[in-house]
Design a protein around this nucleic acid. Structure first.
Lengths: 333, 333
DNA sequence: TTTATTTACGAAACCGGTTTCGTAATACAG
DNA sequence: CTGTATTACGAAACCGGTTTCGTAAATAAA
């Protein structure tokens, strides 16, 4: 910038203001500066600007994983908003580990980002690391997976209702012993779905509420053997609601292996954004989250918190409904 | 930092050095400083450090989209390396648009990132924006989708060979008129697959080489009608190699719609990392890219270029083979 | 014509660390 | 006991913009 200023016989202050289109600078001078900058291939150093302006024009996106199609779509939604606003997106993965999440959030402090979008890990049971960030006045928005009981903005889907609807759907299609496959006892989103599921059983006086929720924890190997045990053991279910994509995949593979027929012997519904659901064998009934929209809405909320200082995000709550699409896997034969 | 220095009766220089574990500072003083920092909840401002040290500890990841499972897996591979190295990852999406890619790369200059990992958009036919970055001495590594003819490091898979193998596979399974479904005439990765495919036809004296490659361009609606025309027209193929996931999905949907039987009337192979391939109807033969490994290798290469100054990345070339997994969709009945 | 405003720009402080260089104190060798 | 190294630390310049404040010139108002 100094060089540019010298070359044009103006001060660095003038160059700086011209580059940022300040009203203090005449159109003529602005043009001169911009042209010279283009000619010399000069662009502002973003970190020098960030340092002085105390804003990074960057947000953090903290995800448990990107294995799932849901988060891919959410990234698209978030990115589309960030791009429009001229913001940059730092992406972090917690790999479902609480400690990773803690260290990621600590990196977000001291001005690295202007805001944080987070979907918490399935291990997270304490919110101290999140509250710490909030005390630094960094706007935070939960999307999809929230930490319950906090006064922090969130964008989620109607998990309870969908769990309820899934159970009703199975019961209406003739299931007498439906089971909900969960992946975590600490994850609010999973619990809500399970709660809705149980509420429906209770209401319909169906199934065995005591054993209606099966938690598959541990490695994918553990998951596999747990599901195998469930599907081949005595008192095996005739309906399954899988809380995530991966579990439904395992159920399908297991059914192919063991010869259990879907939907005749076992009906399946899954919470998933799986695009291949209609061409599976058999086509799979899904409860699809509006992933792109959730990401987009969360990002828009975050930017409201970032741009309007003093704007209190704490009690913002957006709920975008998922849709149940009935396919062969849960149909009554 | 000033406050902290005052509180401890040392200089800011000492605090700075102590925070960074400099050998110039005694263990005793270091401990004192670190404790005080922890107590006051103080962390270094990353942008001040970046500014002075002229390194951002950040890399850019430029993707065409994240719709595809391939890029999700690649993100994981890249992130795992970056995390280990203590680097941050900025994620950008070009949405397959050349102009977006240009403006993204221009953002990467002037020190915002220490290196760039990029998979080019399907529209990109000029490399000036990439060369410009290279002239600024920013290390660049292509992964999966490279711009051919440039002396820039790249990590790819054996696309030609896989195209070849896919054709041979179809021919061996009885196809007499196999077709390759491409999505772009400018994308090297797609062309290589198509070239391999044609080479096999030539060698086996099979099929109609003139019409062996069909390019599906435009919106997904266009794509749909083009494929419909192909599959229902005269001289329709009895084998298809889809260059991307999406095309295979469309082919499957179409076959369900029109009653074309896979694999009896039409055999299908797809380039894809689709996890649901084994449970599709029918199970789908895939050529699976080692997406995680490609991402990981690309990131490792990039960091070699970043950390060892003077290290010339230009001629680095890593090829990681994909694997063809035969399933029902291409089996000879 | 005089005074009040507005316009266009520059000098210098500032953002928050890092690094160079100098120096006092201590350790060590001869 | 003297000369040299080493250790531990501080003063100040520096990274590259931004912002405040002051001012001269031009314009408008009285």
């Amino acid at each position: 910038m100094k060089e540019l200023a010298k070359e044009l016989n103006v001060s660095v202050a003038t160059v700086s203001k011209a580059m940022r289109d300040s009203h203090e600078i005449s159109e003529q001078t602005k043009k001169k500066v911009l042209e010279a900058a283009a000619r010399l291939n000069y662009t502002l150093n973003p970190y020098a600007s960030s340092l002085r302006k105390r804003q990074s024009k960057t947000i953090a996106l903290v995800l448990p994983e990107v294995a799932d199609n849901f988060f891919s779509l959410a990234i698209n939604g978030i990115q589309s908003v960030a791009e429009r606003k001229g913001y940059h997106v730092l992406i972090y993965l917690s790999h479902e580990k609480f400690l990773n999440e803690v260290s990621i959030l600590s990196e977000c402090s001291s001005g690295r980002v202007d805001g944080v979008l987070i979907s918490i890990s399935s291990e997270t049971t304490s919110a101290e690391h999140i509250l710490k960030l909030q005390r630094e006045n960094i706007p935070i928005v939960f999307f999809d997976r929230e930490f319950e009981g906090l006064r922090i903005a969130r964008v989620v889907t109607n998990d309870f209702e969908c769990g309820y609807n899934a159970a009703i759907h199975l019961i209406n299609n003739g299931c007498t012993n439906p089971v909900f496959l969960s992946i975590s006892t600490s994850l609010g989103i999973c619990n809500k779905r399970a709660e809705g599921f149980k509420a429906a059983l209770l209401e319909m006086k169906a199934g065995d509420i005591e054993n209606a929720v099966v938690v598959c924890k541990g490695t994918s190997g553990d998951e596999y053997s747990q599901i195998k045990k469930l599907l081949t053991g005595k008192n095996r279910p005739d309906g399954i609601v899988a809380s995530v994509e991966r579990l439904a995949m395992t159920v399908y593979l297991m059914s192919h292996e063991t010869g259990i027929s879907i939907p005749n012997q076992l009906k399946v519904v899954v919470f998933s954004t799986l695009e291949t659901a209609p061409i599976l064998n058999p086509p799979l009934t899904t409860i699809t989250q509006p992933a792109f929209e959730i990401g987009k809405a969360a990002a828009e909320l975050l930017f409201k918190g970032i741009e309007k200082k003093g704007y209190n995000l704490a009690d913002e709550y957006v709920e975008l409904p998922s849709v149940l699409t009935e396919r062969m896997s849960s149909r009554n034969s």
